Deep mutational scan, measured.
Amino acid sequence: MGMPNRKYADGEVVMGRWPGSVLYYEVQVTSYDDASHLYTVKYKDGTELALKESDIRLQS
């Protein structure tokens, strides 16, 4: 078993793309699913969504 190939840690605050949009919002990573390679993130309004790594970026 190798290390999970994840870029962002639980609790890390990053920018997540809103689905169907080009806009990124501040989100907190809450979990990562090794099987689906999706991150569960929480937006400031409390919305929780699963995002692909390509829809997440570090805060500038």
Rank of each mutant, 00 (worst) to 15 (best):
A35G: 09
H37F: 11
Q28N: 06
Y43A: 14
P19I: 02
G2V: 12
E48T: 14
P4W: 06
V41M: 02
S31C: 06
L58V: 14
S54V: 10
D34W: 12
H37C: 12
Y24K: 01
A35M: 11
V27C: 15
V27D: 00
D33V: 03
V41D: 00
D10T: 08
H37A: 14
K42N: 05
H37P: 01
D55T: 02
G20N: 10
Y8L: 02
E12Q: 15
E48L: 14
V22F: 13
T30P: 00
S21F: 03
V13Y: 13
T47H: 07
E53P: 06
D34G: 10
T30R: 07
D34V: 11
L51M: 08
V27W: 03
L23A: 10
K52I: 09
R6P: 05
S31V: 03
Q59E: 11
P4T: 11
E26N: 05
G16A: 14
Q28P: 00
S36A: 11
A50R: 15
V41P: 01
K42W: 06
E48P: 05
A50E: 14
R17P: 06
G20A: 05
R57E: 12
D33T: 03
S21M: 06
Y8H: 04
Y8C: 02
A50D: 10
Y39D: 00
Q59R: 13
W18V: 09
A9M: 12
V41I: 03
K7F: 04
E26M: 10
K44E: 09
R17G: 02
A50S: 14
T47Q: 10
Q59S: 13
Y8S: 00
G20L: 06
L38F: 10
V14L: 06
G46V: 04
R6A: 04
Y24D: 03
E48I: 15
K52L: 12
G46F: 04
G11T: 03
R17D: 01
L51A: 02
V14M: 02
D55M: 06
L49H: 12
A9T: 08
E48F: 13
K42I: 13
L51G: 00
P4L: 08
L38E: 09
M15K: 05
G16V: 14
H37G: 15
Q59M: 15
D55G: 03
D45A: 02
Y25G: 04
G46L: 05
V14R: 01
V13C: 09
G2Y: 05
E48V: 14
E48W: 07
T47V: 08
Q28G: 02
L51Y: 02
E53D: 09
